[in-house]
Design a protein around this nucleic acid. Structure first.
Lengths: 99, 99
DNA sequence: GAATTACATGAATATATGTTCATATATTAG
DNA sequence: CTAATATATGAACATATATTCATGTAATTC
């Protein structure tokens, strides 16, 4: 009823904005089922490694993914269950649409 | 596991992109608890009526809100339960954060 | 019909954003 | 130390986006 605090609105908007780009969405989806290396994300999504890296930085800063180095490669995965739920929910929801 | 169809990715990204702007988020939040007139949304959110109208058009096109004219005013509300869930979920989730 | 209220629309603009290309850093192998 | 692989970073640029201002339309009141 009473409007949300401005800081909270901005936090939510920033999160959604990150999800609002197809390239980043594909990257996130690629990280849904366990850790994946940056190069593999690039191959899976069709985006250049540089672009993937740029976007992973943004996703990392927003705590949507977490990265861990294993010798040469860096493996990324979705940060927590809430984010996974968010993504699987909207996937399921849009799968049923025809409009 | 197999990547999502491109059309679905684009649909989801488009939806999230709309939610990724603070002004539109405030407008949507204002529509969460029943129909509200455009002018009232403007007052509640602090945005100009013109800006509210522009954004309502986008939200309407994406079927995030529905509008109905009652004599002079046009009342908007969130389109369905799924969208309300989405919003209340993330509100609850971000309310607990401190980072 | 003229005036008023409430909303919608179009053009214009300043700013933000996604992407590429070139280059840097880190880790391992010879 | 040199070479090679994997990722990160910075600058540059073209495009997209949010916002404003001016104007248009729709419904009502006098």
């Amino acid at each position: 009823m009473t409007p949300l605090p401005d800081a909270q609105i901005l936090r939510i908007a920033e999160t959604y904005k990150l999800l609002g780009d197809p390239t980043r969405l594909r990257i996130l989806m690629a990280c849904l089922n366990g850790p994946v290396a940056v190069g593999d994300i690039a191959r899976l999504t069709g985006a250049s490694p540089s672009l993937v890296s740029h976007n992973l930085r943004l996703l990392r800063a927003a705590r949507l993914v977490r990265g861990e180095r294993r010798t040469r490669q860096v493996f990324y995965e979705t940060a927590d269950a809430h984010i996974r739920h968010m993504l699987t929910d909207i996937i399921d929801h849009t799968a049923e649409e025809q409009s």
